[in-house]
């Protein structure tokens, strides 16, 4: 007879693995990716391939030759970072900038802190913000959705609805006058607007989010509370002066709010672990996003808002504890 194995309990394990969770998120992003390919054509495909491939290559090289450890590419986290970075970029960005952004995302934001699980800031957002600050012109010339009709070199670019609104309001225009110059809410919902690859198509991003909640990859807390905060805050402003402040629906459907709320703020590593902590985190992001959008210099603020709140996560985890069993004695 063979020798029996001994190990402490439990002796059975669940089906979830890091790989299955990461691939679940990638799967949830695919419909929105397909939409960005439909709207932006070859550029979208090229940018995503470049970002995913360079993130994976950088992670492999750094793990193998700098950290001298067994590469863990198969867990899918580098590929996900690459995809999320691509979703945050305009589809006509020069490839070398994409590669540079990937290097910052993986090399600086992730691996220098010790790799998966140890990074305080969302790597894809660090990559995006690095590019935004370094190359503001290229990073804000958004191709308009023209599909495969034009080739990469001469796409028509323009401002995003958020930027149009911001400039208009700054120039003394009213919200209702500006609303005529941007796509309708329905078009925004389907994604027919200029913008980064993944910030369009709210509908498909929401479908992916529902899929992730149903598969228990993420919980509803961060996305719902974050979107609720933005809706409430902009709703109050809009109610106070509808001509100076755009309505909540406009704010929810434009910019990277959906992408940020559902896919970036929910990043396991850089979000709090207790439900109460998640609520604080989500409310913080919502408030900061609206403050930047409405009162700040940038038309879009969710990337900064998430990165700022990322910095508070260790503090939140330290002080916000889950409700312990037996904390309140109830006599029924």
């Amino acid at each position: 007879m063979n020798l029996l194995k001994i190990a402490p309990s439990p002796h059975v394990f669940g089906k979830k693995s890091t790989k299955s969770l990461m691939s679940g998120v990638i799967l949830a992003l695919l419909p929105a990716w397909a939409a960005s390919v439909y709207y932006f054509g070859w550029g979208a495909i090229v940018i995503s391939l470049a970002a995913v491939a360079s993130c994976m290559v950088f992670e492999y090289l750094i793990q193998r030759y700098l950290m001298k450890q067994e590469p863990t590419l198969t867990d899918g986290s580098a590929a996900l970072t690459g995809l999320l970075l691509a979703f945050n970029l305009p589809s006509n960005l020069p490839i070398w900038m994409v590669v540079l952004g990937s290097l910052v995302a993986i090399g600086v934001a992730k691996m220098s802190f010790g790799g998966l699980g140890n990074n305080p800031f969302n790597p894809a957002l660090v990559g995006r913000v690095f590019l935004l600050i370094s190359f503001p012109v290229q990073m804000t010339s958004w191709p308009l959705p023209t599909g495969f009709t034009t080739s990469g070199a001469d796409v028509v670019t323009g401002a995003t609805p958020l930027a149009i609104m911001k400039e208009g309001l700054k120039g003394g225009e009213t919200v209702s006058a500006m609303m005529d110059k941007i796509p309708s809410h329905m078009e925004l919902f389907y994604g027919h607007m200029g913008g980064s690859m993944g910030e369009i198509a709210a509908l498909l991003l929401i479908i992916g989010g529902i899929y992730m909640i149903a598969r228990k990859i993420i919980t509803w807390h961060i996305p719902v509370i974050l979107l609720g905060t933005i809706a409430a805050f902009t709703g109050i402003l809009h109610a106070v002066n509808p001509e100076a402040y755009a309505g909540p629906l406009f704010h929810l459907l434009t910019g990277g709010v959906m992408l940020g709320a559902i896919y970036m703020a929910t990043d396991y590593v850089t979000s709090p672990m207790s439900k109460k902590g998640m609520a604080i985190f989500a409310i913080g992001i919502g408030v900061i996003t609206v403050v930047i959008r409405v009162f700040g210099a940038y038309p879009e603020g969710i990337s900064f808002a998430i990165l700022i709140m990322n910095a508070f996560v260790p503090l939140i985890n330290q002080y916000i504890k889950p409700k312990r069993f037996g904390e309140e004695v109830k006599h029924g």
Partner: peptide, 21 residues
């Protein structure tokens, strides 16, 4: 299965019946 890095997914917090971390 081989152990890998904690990704701070908080699933252990969610399933703990005693509300621990």
């Amino acid at each position: 299965r081989a152990e890998s890095n904690c990704i701070k997914c908080a699933k252990c917090v969610d399933v703990c019946p005693m509300g621990l971390e």
